[in-house]
Amino acid sequence: MALEVTNLVGGYSQIPVLHQVTFDVQPGELVGLIGLNGAGKSTTINHLIGLLQPFAGSIVLNGHNIQTDPVSYKEQIAYVPEAPVLYDELTLREHIEVTIKAYHLNSEQAWQRAQKLLKTFRLDNKLDWFPADFSKGMKQKVMIVCAFMTDEKLYIIDEPFYGLDPLAVQDLLNLIEQKKQQGAGILMSTHVLDTAEKYCDRFVLLNSGHVTFKGSLQAMRAANNDQSASLNDIYLSMAKGDRHE
Protein backbone atom coordinates (compact mmCIF):
# COMPACT_ATOMS: atom_id res chain seq x y z
CA MET A 1 0.00 0.00 0.00
CA ALA A 2 1.06 3.60 -0.48
CA LEU A 3 0.04 7.23 -0.75
CA GLU A 4 -2.18 7.62 -3.82
CA VAL A 5 -3.07 11.11 -5.01
CA THR A 6 -5.55 10.90 -7.87
CA ASN A 7 -6.87 13.76 -10.04
CA LEU A 8 -6.50 16.23 -7.18
CA VAL A 9 -8.07 19.62 -7.83
CA GLY A 10 -7.62 22.09 -5.03
CA GLY A 11 -6.58 25.50 -3.82
CA TYR A 12 -7.72 28.37 -1.68
CA SER A 13 -11.32 29.61 -1.40
CA GLN A 14 -12.88 28.51 -4.70
CA ILE A 15 -9.87 29.24 -6.90
CA PRO A 16 -8.20 26.07 -8.24
CA VAL A 17 -4.43 26.04 -7.88
CA LEU A 18 -3.93 22.32 -8.49
CA HIS A 19 -5.28 20.75 -11.67
CA GLN A 20 -5.78 16.97 -11.89
CA VAL A 21 -2.62 16.25 -9.87
CA THR A 22 -1.87 12.53 -9.79
CA PHE A 23 1.14 10.78 -8.23
CA ASP A 24 2.03 8.18 -5.63
CA VAL A 25 4.61 7.51 -2.94
CA GLN A 26 5.45 3.86 -2.40
CA PRO A 27 6.74 2.29 0.84
CA GLY A 28 10.51 2.42 1.12
CA GLU A 29 11.09 5.25 -1.34
CA LEU A 30 11.91 8.95 -1.29
CA VAL A 31 9.98 11.03 -3.81
CA GLY A 32 11.13 14.55 -4.58
CA LEU A 33 8.42 17.15 -5.15
CA ILE A 34 10.05 19.87 -7.25
CA GLY A 35 8.95 22.96 -9.13
CA LEU A 36 9.37 26.70 -9.43
CA ASN A 37 8.04 29.08 -6.79
CA GLY A 38 4.27 29.15 -7.14
CA ALA A 39 4.15 25.80 -8.93
CA GLY A 40 1.81 24.32 -6.31
CA LYS A 41 4.16 22.38 -4.05
CA SER A 42 3.02 23.97 -0.78
CA THR A 43 -0.62 23.78 -1.85
CA THR A 44 -0.19 20.08 -2.57
CA ILE A 45 1.39 19.49 0.83
CA ASN A 46 -1.35 21.48 2.58
CA HIS A 47 -3.90 19.14 1.02
CA LEU A 48 -1.90 16.05 2.01
CA ILE A 49 -1.76 17.09 5.67
CA GLY A 50 -5.41 18.14 5.76
CA LEU A 51 -5.11 21.91 6.00
CA LEU A 52 -7.01 22.28 2.71
CA GLN A 53 -9.97 20.31 1.41
CA PRO A 54 -9.86 19.03 -2.20
CA PHE A 55 -12.36 20.43 -4.67
CA ALA A 56 -12.20 17.10 -6.50
CA GLY A 57 -10.09 13.96 -6.64
CA SER A 58 -8.85 11.76 -3.82
CA ILE A 59 -5.98 11.39 -1.37
CA VAL A 60 -5.63 7.90 0.07
CA LEU A 61 -2.95 6.46 2.34
CA ASN A 62 -2.93 2.70 2.86
CA GLY A 63 -6.64 2.50 2.11
CA HIS A 64 -7.67 5.46 4.27
CA ASN A 65 -9.18 8.43 2.46
CA ILE A 66 -8.41 11.81 4.00
CA GLN A 67 -11.96 13.03 3.39
CA THR A 68 -13.96 10.02 4.56
CA ASP A 69 -11.56 8.70 7.20
CA PRO A 70 -9.40 11.67 8.26
CA VAL A 71 -8.37 10.35 11.69
CA SER A 72 -7.01 7.02 10.41
CA TYR A 73 -5.35 8.84 7.51
CA LYS A 74 -3.60 11.46 9.65
CA GLU A 75 -2.49 8.90 12.24
CA GLN A 76 -0.10 7.55 9.61
CA ILE A 77 1.62 10.86 8.80
CA ALA A 78 4.53 12.79 10.30
CA TYR A 79 5.21 16.28 8.94
CA VAL A 80 8.23 18.59 8.98
CA PRO A 81 7.19 22.08 7.82
CA GLU A 82 9.44 24.52 6.01
CA ALA A 83 9.10 27.08 8.81
CA PRO A 84 9.42 25.54 12.30
CA VAL A 85 6.22 25.71 14.36
CA LEU A 86 6.91 25.49 18.09
CA TYR A 87 5.02 26.43 21.24
CA ASP A 88 6.72 29.38 22.92
CA GLU A 89 5.63 28.28 26.40
CA LEU A 90 6.93 24.71 26.12
CA THR A 91 10.47 23.43 26.59
CA LEU A 92 12.06 20.95 24.21
CA ARG A 93 11.28 18.21 26.74
CA GLU A 94 7.62 19.23 26.75
CA HIS A 95 7.48 19.29 22.94
CA ILE A 96 8.59 15.67 22.97
CA GLU A 97 5.99 14.80 25.59
CA VAL A 98 3.28 16.46 23.49
CA THR A 99 4.40 14.43 20.47
CA ILE A 100 4.23 11.21 22.48
CA LYS A 101 0.68 12.00 23.58
CA ALA A 102 -0.47 13.18 20.15
CA TYR A 103 0.71 9.98 18.46
CA HIS A 104 -0.28 7.70 21.37
CA LEU A 105 3.28 6.37 21.57
CA ASN A 106 4.71 4.11 24.21
CA SER A 107 6.45 6.64 26.42
CA GLU A 108 9.53 4.59 27.26
CA GLN A 109 10.17 3.46 23.70
CA ALA A 110 9.47 6.91 22.28
CA TRP A 111 11.89 8.54 24.70
CA GLN A 112 14.57 6.04 23.72
CA ARG A 113 14.14 7.02 20.08
CA ALA A 114 13.99 10.69 20.99
CA GLN A 115 17.18 10.55 23.05
CA LYS A 116 19.04 8.97 20.16
CA LEU A 117 17.79 11.66 17.76
CA LEU A 118 18.56 14.44 20.24
CA LYS A 119 22.13 13.23 20.50
CA THR A 120 22.42 12.94 16.71
CA PHE A 121 21.27 16.53 16.23
CA ARG A 122 23.23 17.79 19.25
CA LEU A 123 20.18 18.80 21.27
CA ASP A 124 20.50 16.29 24.11
CA ASN A 125 21.74 18.92 26.57
CA LYS A 126 18.98 21.41 25.71
CA LEU A 127 15.87 19.62 26.94
CA ASP A 128 14.94 22.48 29.26
CA TRP A 129 15.41 25.21 26.66
CA PHE A 130 12.47 27.19 25.29
CA PRO A 131 12.01 28.02 21.57
CA ALA A 132 13.23 31.57 22.22
CA ASP A 133 16.62 30.08 23.13
CA PHE A 134 16.99 28.26 19.80
CA SER A 135 18.37 29.47 16.49
CA LYS A 136 16.31 28.84 13.32
CA GLY A 137 18.42 25.80 12.52
CA MET A 138 17.97 24.41 16.02
CA LYS A 139 14.20 24.92 15.77
CA GLN A 140 14.28 22.97 12.51
CA LYS A 141 16.12 20.17 14.28
CA VAL A 142 13.44 20.10 16.97
CA MET A 143 10.80 19.62 14.27
CA ILE A 144 12.85 16.81 12.73
CA VAL A 145 13.27 15.06 16.08
CA CYS A 146 9.55 15.30 16.87
CA ALA A 147 8.58 13.92 13.46
CA PHE A 148 11.12 11.12 13.20
CA MET A 149 10.72 9.87 16.76
CA THR A 150 7.38 8.52 15.54
CA ASP A 151 7.09 5.35 13.51
CA GLU A 152 4.72 6.52 10.79
CA LYS A 153 3.98 5.15 7.34
CA LEU A 154 4.51 8.46 5.52
CA TYR A 155 6.84 11.38 6.22
CA ILE A 156 6.14 14.68 4.49
CA ILE A 157 9.10 17.04 4.56
CA ASP A 158 8.86 20.57 3.19
CA GLU A 159 12.15 22.28 2.22
CA PRO A 160 14.08 20.71 5.12
CA PHE A 161 17.61 21.87 4.31
CA TYR A 162 17.31 25.63 4.72
CA GLY A 163 18.80 26.72 8.03
CA LEU A 164 20.55 23.41 8.68
CA ASP A 165 24.33 23.22 8.89
CA PRO A 166 26.07 20.68 6.60
CA LEU A 167 26.43 18.11 9.37
CA ALA A 168 22.74 18.33 10.22
CA VAL A 169 21.85 17.97 6.52
CA GLN A 170 23.82 14.73 6.36
CA ASP A 171 22.27 13.53 9.63
CA LEU A 172 18.81 14.14 8.16
CA LEU A 173 19.67 12.31 4.95
CA ASN A 174 20.94 9.34 6.97
CA LEU A 175 17.72 9.39 8.96
CA ILE A 176 15.63 9.42 5.80
CA GLU A 177 17.58 6.42 4.51
CA GLN A 178 16.91 4.57 7.77
CA LYS A 179 13.18 5.23 7.52
CA LYS A 180 13.17 4.05 3.91
CA GLN A 181 14.82 0.80 4.96
CA GLN A 182 12.11 0.38 7.59
CA GLY A 183 9.47 0.64 4.86
CA ALA A 184 8.25 4.20 5.26
CA GLY A 185 7.39 6.37 2.27
CA ILE A 186 8.82 9.89 2.19
CA LEU A 187 7.70 12.89 0.14
CA MET A 188 10.18 15.76 0.18
CA SER A 189 9.74 19.18 -1.36
CA THR A 190 13.08 20.82 -2.11
CA HIS A 191 14.94 23.29 -4.30
CA VAL A 192 18.29 21.72 -3.39
CA LEU A 193 18.47 19.72 -6.58
CA ASP A 194 22.01 18.39 -6.30
CA THR A 195 21.05 16.66 -3.06
CA ALA A 196 17.72 15.51 -4.47
CA GLU A 197 19.49 13.98 -7.46
CA LYS A 198 21.65 11.83 -5.19
CA TYR A 199 18.99 10.67 -2.76
CA CYS A 200 15.52 10.68 -4.36
CA ASP A 201 14.22 7.54 -6.01
CA ARG A 202 11.65 9.36 -8.13
CA PHE A 203 10.51 12.91 -8.83
CA VAL A 204 7.23 14.75 -9.32
CA LEU A 205 7.67 18.00 -11.25
CA LEU A 206 4.92 20.57 -10.78
CA ASN A 207 4.35 23.61 -12.96
CA SER A 208 1.39 25.97 -12.62
CA GLY A 209 -0.49 23.35 -10.63
CA HIS A 210 -0.01 20.59 -13.19
CA VAL A 211 2.18 17.50 -12.96
CA THR A 212 4.47 17.90 -15.97
CA PHE A 213 6.66 14.90 -15.21
CA LYS A 214 6.89 12.02 -12.75
CA GLY A 215 9.49 9.31 -12.71
CA SER A 216 13.12 8.49 -12.03
CA LEU A 217 16.14 10.58 -12.98
CA GLN A 218 16.89 8.03 -15.69
CA ALA A 219 13.39 8.51 -17.12
CA MET A 220 13.80 12.29 -16.94
CA ARG A 221 17.08 12.03 -18.86
CA ALA A 222 15.44 9.84 -21.47
CA ALA A 223 12.57 12.31 -21.86
CA ASN A 224 15.11 15.10 -22.24
CA ASN A 225 17.27 13.06 -24.69
CA ASP A 226 20.37 13.55 -22.56
CA GLN A 227 21.60 10.57 -20.50
CA SER A 228 24.32 12.63 -18.81
CA ALA A 229 22.30 15.69 -17.83
CA SER A 230 22.06 16.67 -14.17
CA LEU A 231 18.71 17.02 -12.44
CA ASN A 232 19.30 20.77 -12.26
CA ASP A 233 19.80 21.00 -16.05
CA ILE A 234 16.74 18.89 -16.80
CA TYR A 235 14.63 20.75 -14.26
CA LEU A 236 15.53 24.13 -15.75
CA SER A 237 14.87 22.90 -19.28
CA MET A 238 11.48 21.43 -18.40
CA ALA A 239 10.45 24.36 -16.20
CA LYS A 240 11.37 26.95 -18.84
CA GLY A 241 9.62 24.96 -21.52
CA ASP A 242 6.45 24.63 -19.48
CA ARG A 243 6.56 28.26 -18.47
CA HIS A 244 6.53 29.40 -22.09
CA GLU A 245 3.65 27.17 -23.15
Rank of each mutant, 00 (worst) to 15 (best):
V169A: 05
N65M: 05
V85K: 12
N7G: 08
W129S: 15
H64L: 06
F121M: 11
F161W: 11
N106Q: 10
K198S: 10
D24R: 14
M143D: 14
M149H: 03
L61H: 02
G163T: 14
S237T: 13
H64F: 13
G183C: 05
I15F: 10
M143E: 15
A114I: 02
L3H: 03
F134K: 01
M238R: 15
T190M: 09
N65T: 05
L3M: 06
A223V: 04
Q76F: 08
T91V: 07
D226A: 13
V25F: 04
N224S: 11
S208I: 00
H104D: 15
L172R: 09
K198M: 10
I100A: 09
Q115P: 01
D242L: 10
G183F: 09
G241W: 07
G63D: 05
P81I: 12
P131E: 07
A78N: 08
G241L: 09
P54Y: 01
K153W: 02
A168S: 15
K240W: 06
V9Q: 11
N225E: 13
Y162H: 11
Y87Q: 08
L51G: 08
L172V: 10
T44Q: 06
Y155N: 02
A102I: 09
D171Q: 15
S58F: 03
T212G: 11
S216C: 04
V142Y: 04
L127A: 08
Y87N: 08
R113G: 04
A110V: 10
Q178I: 13
R93K: 15
G10T: 08
N232A: 12
G32Q: 02
L33F: 12
Q140I: 01
G38R: 00
T44F: 11
Q140C: 01
I176Y: 01
L86G: 10
G185M: 06
M1T: 13
C146A: 15
H19T: 01
A223R: 11
T22Q: 08
M220V: 10
T44N: 08
K153N: 12
T212A: 11
I34W: 01
F23G: 07
L187Y: 12
L193I: 05
H64R: 11
L193R: 03
T68Q: 13
L86R: 03
E245I: 12
G40Q: 03
N7K: 10
N232Y: 07
L8S: 09
A56H: 09
G215K: 01
Q109T: 14
Y73T: 07
N62I: 00
A56I: 03
I96L: 15
V204S: 03
N65H: 14
D151G: 09
G10C: 10
V5R: 00
I15R: 11
Y79K: 08
N125H: 15
I49W: 02
S216H: 02
Q227S: 14
L173A: 02
P27M: 08
A132I: 13
D201T: 06
L206P: 04
R243Y: 13
D158K: 00
M149F: 07
H64P: 00
Y73E: 06
G137K: 04
L30E: 01
